[in-house]
Design a protein around this nucleic acid. Structure first.
Lengths: 109, 109
DNA sequence: CTCAGCTATTCAGTGTTGCTAGATACCAGT
DNA sequence: ACTGGTATCTAGCAACACTGAATAGCTGAG
């Protein structure tokens, strides 16, 4: 997609990844692949890894290193209590924004 | 609001302002005030002015300088054809993102 | 055995964006 | 003169996603 998506992802991509981790633990490569499947066709791998480092540093996830049979060891991330809390706040923020935009969309046409 | 909103606004604030201008022409101070009324309680004025400069430079709006009775002259911005096109693309992008997030929200709980 | 190709992670450098914190300017009322 | 509301602009900052690469383990083709 275009530059528009890129800019819109700022701030939401983090929530998206947390939401994915809320379903079940996952590692970077897997998350990227799942995102691509879901239509985010050109999210850069580097972006995801950087994001994972960030949320780990903030204590939103727990990490476990697990050997892979197909390559180097995987770093499996799982959402912890703090992460779940943060995710809920993310949803509230998102709802707020989505409501405002829906209003604008209707009012503006 | 918090840092979360700030990051989420990146990329969407532009669309929001364009959507406001789609309803009717407006100037910076007015746009800021309207946003505050609509719940974006702490969007910085400087942000809006910078954004307006940007979308003008990209040719999405037309500008007209109109004297004010209450202060310095106003720069009234109105959406032109190119801006309307861009706004439509913004809505498409937004819809894409909103759908994905709605899916995640349901699936993830 | 070597090389391509998939898996898996990391990192330095870049551009865009919104915020901070001011400065500037016009006008009315005290 | 001074305060306060109106109105715009700017330089410097922080956060984020992207680019483009490097590194590393494993498998199968040649």
């Amino acid at each position: 997609m275009g530059k528009q998506v890129t800019e819109m992802l700022k701030g939401t991509l983090e929530g998206i990844v947390l939401a994915i981790l809320a379903i079940r633990p996952a590692y970077g490569y897997e998350i990227t692949a799942r995102l691509r499947d879901q239509g985010f066709s050109d999210i850069a791998e580097g972006t995801i890894y950087a994001l994972l480092v960030r949320i780990e540093r903030r204590g939103l996830v727990d990490v476990e290193k697990i050997p892979s049979e197909k390559g180097p060891p995987r770093k499996v991330y799982s959402l912890n209590a703090q992460g779940r809390e943060y995710l809920e706040e993310f949803w509230r923020t998102w709802s707020f924004l989505a409501e405002r935009l829906e209003q604008l969309r209707e009012g503006g046409n």
